[in-house]
């Protein structure tokens, strides 16, 4: 089997070109050479992969000539056509870290070549790029080289071979917003007891799930005149015409439904039901108005309290449905409602 081809990016310091006085060293391609940390990678790869070229670039040069440096280096990488690109490790060197992150992300995005880098968690390049490329956690100085290479090298090979990458805690990369399952060595209850003992003793512990931040949106301005307003109904309670014609899933919905209620003044047991699998469906199946209040809004429409009840309602199942799916449904539904001149939406959920 042919060896996996690797192109490695390092700075002037690790190429032993020089220190700060050589930081303006322009990008240089050294074909067929493994340089500095590249030797450690080569040793770790054994016969499975080889560094076919090393790109050396001064940290100041890269950051001060960002566009040109990026363009030149991308051209070098394209020409070498490696299976995987490695940048760094940069440890706690700020400009080097940003350069590694920038070029690794560009190689991956623009050339479609998987890329990996590594640096200290507090390196500014870490936060900037950890969600774009696999960013291995390293110590804060070059004394951590062996440890960094021992994580980066196998990860690079996995990426090159297109193998499944495990969870951050297994592979040693920084959490990147994508949750990945893995089998821990201990069962959850034992992990919980150990975490509690640490917390009680005031010792450091690491939560398995840091709390998220949720989106915020500006409230829309108030409606001035309800009697002329067009009101629409949207629900995550899974109300659908009897038989669930679009097969909306009982959990983890992959779609939403759009249904016409022109002339419908009451949702009955024979005409509507719920597709939702997360709550006792008996009540909603008996009378879906309990979730989607069409009957009351028709009355209010007749009485003139509202201008009009929109003739379409939108529905999905909130049960176990990911926020990302829900967001995508909402964006489409909102666009349709806007196009139809709807003034306000009543969203009901179960």
């Amino acid at each position: 089997m042919a060896k996996i081809k690797v192109v490695h990016y390092i700075n002037q310091f690790f190429a032993q070109v020089g220190g700060e006085e050589k930081a303006d060293y322009p990008a240089e391609l050294r074909i067929g050479e493994a340089v500095g940390p590249g030797l450690a990678f080569a040793a770790n790869f054994k016969d499975e992969a080889e560094i076919i070229a090393t790109i050396v670039c001064g940290d100041s040069y890269f950051n001060e000539n960002l566009e040109k440096a990026k363009k030149d280096i991308l051209a070098m990488v394209r020409e070498q056509a490696p299976d995987v690109f490695i940048a760094g490790p940069a440890f706690n060197a700020g400009r080097y870290g940003v350069a590694c992150g920038t070029i690794a992300a560009a190689v991956q995005e623009e050339l479609g070549i998987p890329a990996v880098s590594g640096m200290y968690v507090e390196n500014p390049g870490a936060d900037m790029f950890k969600n774009q490329i696999y960013m291995v956690v390293t110590k804060n100085n070059a004394a951590g080289m062996r440890d960094a290479v021992s994580k980066m090298a196998p990860l690079a090979l996995k990426l090159a071979k297109g193998e499944t990458v495990g969870a951050s805690v297994e592979e040693g990369y920084m959490p990147n917003g994508t949750r990945v399952n893995f089998f821990d060595k201990k069962r959850g209850s034992e992990r919980a007891v150990q975490m509690l003992l640490k917390k009680l003793a005031g010792k450091a512990f690491e939560t398995e799930y840091p709390m998220p931040n949720f989106d915020r949106v500006e409230p829309s301005p108030p409606i001035k005149d309800l009697s002329h307003a067009k009101i629409a109904l949207v629900t995550s309670g899974g109300i659908v015409p009897k038989g669930n014609p679009d097969h909306i899933e009982s959990s983890s919905a992959s779609r939403y439904g759009e249904y016409d209620i022109t002339g419908v003044s009451d949702l009955t047991e024979d005409t509507y039901e719920t597709a939702h699998g997360g709550y006792d469906p008996v009540y909603a199946n008996k009378d879906a108005d309990r979730v989607l209040p069409v009957d009351v809004l028709r009355d209010l429409e007749k009485e003139g309290a509202i201008g009009k009840l929109h003739n379409l309602f939108y529905t999905t199942v909130g049960n176990g449905t990911s926020v990302a799916s829900a967001k995508a449904f909402a964006a489409e539904i909102a666009a349709k409602l806007k196009k139809d001149g709807v003034d306000a939406v009543i969203l009901t959920s179960t």
Partner: peptide
């Protein structure tokens, strides 16, 4: 939850 707008 099973009947946000009702009471069976």
């Amino acid at each position: 939850i099973p009947y946000p707008l009702g009471n069976p």
